[in-house]
């Protein structure tokens, strides 16, 4: 049995099959992911946790062909725009077909990102919806 640890606290939970958790400014309504400790737009300090939509649209992407800190090539990363007005940077699930295109619908998945010191590191990715 291999231990699983999450990549960082407070970014997601496992409700509804896994969803991202952001926060929302009570004054101006701006939504943040990862959570902001105060509103970067109006500097309001009253921010509350909100679960984010599980689907969004691909704003841009690339396939890495050289290693990054934890990923061996090929790996895909991209920017996904969620309906809440948040842009999320995330690894993308590279499928055999590898058919990413700007504007396509994407869905969040919570799964293993990489292994480190015998542990599975769990985080979020997006895959074509």
């Amino acid at each position: 049995m291999v231990d699983a640890v999450i990549v960082r606290e407070g970014l997601f939970d496992d409700a509804e099959g896994g969803r991202l958790l952001g926060n929302k400014c009570a004054s101006c309504g701006k939504v943040y992911f990862p959570k902001a400790s105060f509103c970067f737009s109006c500097f309001g300090t009253n921010v509350e946790e909100v679960a984010l939509s599980k689907r969004g649209k691909l704003y841009s992407y690339t396939i890495g062909r050289m290693p990054s800190t934890h990923f061996q090539p090929p790996y895909a990363v991209g920017l996904v725009d969620l309906p809440e007005g948040v842009r999320v940077f995330a690894p993308l699930k590279l499928t055999e077909a590898d058919t990413f295109r700007i504007g396509m619908d994407m869905a969040v998945v919570i799964e293993e990102l990489w292994q480190e010191d015998g542990k599975l590191i769990i985080g979020y990715k997006f895959k074509p919806a």
């Binding site: 990549v7 841009s60 890495g64 990054s68 800190t69 790996y75 990363v77 940077f89 700007i102």
Partner: peptide, 20 residues
């Protein structure tokens, strides 16, 4: 940096800019 762990590098950022 969280995004650095998730695969963000200088070339990956500029590659995403290039696609746009």
């Amino acid at each position: 940096d969280l995004d650095g762990h998730l695969g963000m590098t200088m070339p990956s950022v500029f590659a995403m800019v290039a696609r746009r």
